[in-house]
Write a protein that binds this DNA or RNA. Structure first.
Lengths: 216, 216
DNA sequence: CTATGACGGATAGTATCAGTATCCATAAAC
DNA sequence: GTTTATGGATACTGATACTATCCGTCATAG
């Protein structure tokens, strides 16, 4: 398969594929002569993954690169791969809330508290930690404390999600085949990132439905 | 309060505030003379809202404008305001999956089915509808059908979120005061958009915790 | 009462991101 | 053997979200 067919199969324009090759998101094709390369099934698959992460997951190209490098590394522990996926969808924050404000400290305390109550094991550098803290601080400063009060209800649901996703990834495939570590790593990335999109869009639909029915 | 103090209070640089004024995100201050304006509490509040939507909610400036215009309109039905919030956080899709592919049709059918089964009332143009369909199609084409198989579990949780958010918005404030329609509209926007960030970051934390504990 | 700084308003410039476009020499297909 | 496609390199583009600069005015501290 040459680049034109790869483009036709995936719907990605040729210049874009070339761009992904340049950026190292997509491994180079096998060269049969100095200017003739051939691509195959893994390339199609990888390209679909890239597009899903970029279009649906809103993952920046640089982070996609980080993720696929992890997938290709073969020696990266699964936990690290998950870290990359988490890092990819967590915007680097430049501390909009000036960190030593009292509202931020309060949010921080509440997060620590929640984690302890839940018995969660969280690394102190986890990117989601800052996001959560800042979100809570923002909700408070906007006067939405009541939402924050239901944190535990959210946490319950979210734990269920996480466990569900693990079982989806570790249980054998529909055809009964065991999963290779490669496939698991890829599934984890997809599940983490597209799972978020899935939940978000379902949530919006549920909201719209209630709203259309007039809230009661 | 002049622009310098507004900047100090909110931590937003003066040129950025000017930019928001230009874009109509922030209403102009009250002019005491042709080149002297004063800002007050509502401006602080609005600015905080803008920053929360932009920084935490990743809402594009143009969509923030759309949202605050709705908040200021006074006559916009709540349902429409919700629509604006939903539209703001739903990326315009340019149909990456070429729409008439069989995988897309299958996903479409599954979504229709889900909505019927749930008894949801959804407008056909709902932006989340396309996102959901494309996400399901992408998950399938990436071989993650098992995740898709748990759609109903997700839907259960998500319904709970939506109801919880409604009660948070419609129940009286902590101080017992009733809520004005204005305040409800703003709460809905905040809840919809920051709620998503909240859920997403909690989910990542739950995942990380399970991962750190070795999945078992 | 003037010097110094902030302010409002307008216009122009910048950085980043995610592609697109263009070239060219070579290879393939008809 | 001529048209088309390809690989690879380099340059350009459009959108987004700010920043920077100017300028004339205003406030206010000395």
């Amino acid at each position: 398969m040459r680049i034109g067919e790869l483009s036709r199969v995936t719907g990605v324009p040729v210049p874009t594929i070339k761009y992904y090759l340049r950026e190292g998101l997509l491994p180079p094709g096998e060269l049969s002569s100095p200017n003739q390369a051939s691509y195959d099934e893994p390339h199609v698959r990888r390209l679909r993954l890239i597009r899903a992460l970029v279009d649906l997951g809103q993952v920046p190209i640089a982070q996609v690169k980080n993720i696929v490098e992890g997938l290709d590394s073969k020696t990266l522990p699964l936990h690290e791969q998950i870290g990359r996926a988490h890092y990819a969808i967590t915007r680097p924050r430049q501390l909009s809330t000036s960190s030593e404000e009292p509202s931020y400290a309060a949010a921080e305390a509440q997060v620590t508290d929640l984690i302890a109550r839940r018995g969660w094991t969280i690394h102190a550098e986890a990117p989601a930690l800052t996001t959560l803290t800042e979100t809570i601080a923002a909700l408070r400063s906007l006067g939405q404390d009541n939402l924050v009060g239901h944190l535990d209800a959210y946490a319950d649901a979210v734990e269920a999600f996480a466990e569900l996703e693990i079982s989806a990834v570790t249980s054998p495939a529909p055809d009964g085949a065991a999963r290779t570590p490669d496939a698991v790593a890829e599934s984890v990335v997809i599940g983490t990132i597209l799972g978020e999109t899935l939940i978000a869009s379902l949530r919006l639909l549920a909201q719209e439905s209630l709203s259309a029915q007039g809230w009661r």
